[in-house]
């Protein structure tokens, strides 16, 4: 586990210019880089892939540490079982493929040999959500958070950018038990401050707003920040919370946000059913009922198109976050 961090809400050390100077990087590229570094430091780390190592970026590890890399072919179920077996001999396996195959194709294997058996397997899936783009609905996982979140013993993490991804990978290597990390294909802006360090179960608070708080994860964190800026110009105080750990949810931060604004908007590149929006609603309904608006795919599959077009089509944009909030505040 990483060093202990304060349980108080961390706020952004505003050095916006520096953050915005950085070029967008895909979280999968950050994963590949983190694995390479871990490979040097940690002889117990092994990596499995299902014929997508060039896309998931495990290929760097594969080339540098061929004895500790297992290409399982197009066989996700076998990959998960094999990863569980490796974990049972003390290895720390990272098993990667596209999110739709990792969580859907091998769900029962994850349930039985990873979660029920509580094995130390790290499931790091790439190509989640609609920003997969042109490949279309068959390849766009919009249900994976729901599938993983329902499993006992599972931790679910959705990093917002490259830096957070690296921090997540370096943290979970020491966290015993099953972890699911959801990464993307597309390049994403760097949003997290330079001194940020991921702590499992701890949300990062950019700002707690008095009128509304936007709870986001993954690529929507950047959109939430843009939306908050636009709203600020119109005199609306919108807060932004990066809820990178979706399970276990940072209930304390969520409660603070709900108490402060009395209105919550969730934004995710996932179905509004069972994902971040679902998790937030479950907690608030039982503990502090306030109105919630959920932005995400609305019980639908994706389709082919460019990532930007698809995000617009599904209303996963800063503009739609702004509109949704204005509409909700009218009532």
């Amino acid at each position: 586990m990483g060093e202990a961090q304060s349980t108080e809400h961390r706020t952004q050390n505003t050095d916006k210019s520096r953050t915005e100077e950085k070029k967008p990087v895909a979280t999968r590229d950050a994963y590949g880089k983190a694995l390479l570094e871990l490979g040097e430091k940690r002889p117990d780390v092994v990596v499995l892939d299902a014929d997508l190592s060039g896309s998931t970026k495990t290929i760097g590890f594969a080339k540098k540490f061929p004895d500790r890399f297992f290409n399982m072919g197009i066989a996700e179920q076998d990959m998960i079982g094999t990863a569980a077996g490796l974990a049972l001999t003390g290895k720390v396996p990272f098993a990667s493929t596209f999110a739709v195959f990792e969580t859907g194709r091998a769900w029962d294997q994850i349930r039985l040999t990873v979660c029920y058996s509580n094995t130390n397997v790290k499931l790091v899936a790439t190509h989640s959500g609609i920003t997969v783009g042109e490949d279309g609905a068959s390849h766009q996982a919009l249900e994976d958070i729901a599938l993983m979140r329902a499993l006992p013993n599972m931790t679910v993490i959705v990093p917002a950018d490259a830096a957070e991804t690296e921090s997540v990978i370096n943290t979970i290597v020491d966290q015993k038990g099953p972890v699911y990390v959801r990464l993307g294909r597309a390049k994403v802006p760097c949003v997290m401050p330079d001194d940020y360090k991921f702590t499992p179960g701890k949300a990062f608070v950019f700002h707690i707003g008095k009128d509304v708080n936007i709870v986001a994860a993954g690529i929507t964190v950047d959109m939430a920040r843009k939306a908050a800026e636009i709203l600020s110009e119109e005199g609306i105080d919108a807060g932004v919370v990066n809820m990178s750990t979706i399970k276990p949810l940072d209930e304390e931060t969520l409660l603070t946000a709900a108490q402060s604004s009395g209105l919550i908007v969730t934004a995710e590149e996932h179905s509004v059913i069972g994902g971040l929006g679902g998790a937030v609603c479950e907690f608030l309904a039982e503990n502090y009922p306030v109105p919630v608006k959920r932005i995400g795919t609305q019980d639908s599959f994706g389709c082919s198109g460019s990532p930007a077009e698809l995000l617009k089509l599904h209303g996963i944009t800063a503009e739609n976050i702004v509109e949704t909030i204005k509409e909700a505040l009218k009532k």
């Binding site: 297992f70 094999t82 990863a83 077996g85 049972l88 003390g90 396996p93």
Partner: peptide, 10 residues
Amino acid sequence: LSVANGMALG
């Protein structure tokens, strides 16, 4: 059998 393979490889 998949788990057995993983153990054997480990």
